[in-house]
């Protein structure tokens, strides 16, 4: 049963990812990306990472994709942005080589790294405890990253005095 759900989700994720890069209209690309993110969130649930799945939907599929759509609509891109480029073939070949380089080591791993019975539950409770004890230091640094990014956005958009 779990395997069946996984296969459905994985096929959905990969096929919509292919749609993202082959579509000529940017709006379709963005919508396909949304479905990739939903499928990924489903795979996270299968891995017991409930919190991550929730964040994936809320942050990526929700916030970030809305921003994407806004930008696409504001720019009002027509299909002419799509240029035929011979370099694409080189990029495609290299990309495929890259995929195989990644697939090889994954097939090599035969056993589960963590036995299924010992798999921890990635819910908000467990993640919260880890985040505020062992990982409190990187957690605080993340706040600095957000601050810097905010300041950067203002530096580049502020009206010049």
């Amino acid at each position: 049963m779990e395997l069946a759900i996984f296969i459905v989700l994985a096929v959905l994720a990969i096929s919509s990812a292919v749609v993202v890069i082959t579509q000529k209209s940017p709006v379709y690309s963005v919508l396909a990306l949304v479905s990739t993110f939903f499928a990924l969130a489903g795979i996270y649930v299968l891995l017991n990472a409930y919190f991550l799945a929730m964040i994936q939907i809320a942050v990526y599929a929700g916030a970030i994709m809305v921003l994407f759509l806004f930008v696409v609509m504001l720019l009002n891109l027509k299909e002419q942005y799509y240029v035929e480029n011979p370099k694409k073939i080189i990029g495609g070949v290299l990309g495929l080589a890259f995929v195989f380089a990644l697939l090889f080591p994954i097939f090599e791993i035969e056993k589960n790294l963590v036995p299924e019975s010992q798999m921890p539950v990635g819910d908000a409770y467990n993640i919260g405890i880890r985040l505020f004890t062992d990982y409190v230091f990187p957690f605080e640094i993340a706040s600095i990253i957000l601050l810097i990014a905010t300041v950067g956005a203002i530096v580049f958009t502020k009206k010049h005095s």
Partner: peptide, 10 residues
Amino acid sequence: LEVMSIALYI
């Protein structure tokens, strides 16, 4: 790395 890099981009 991200703290350093993002500040450097700016």
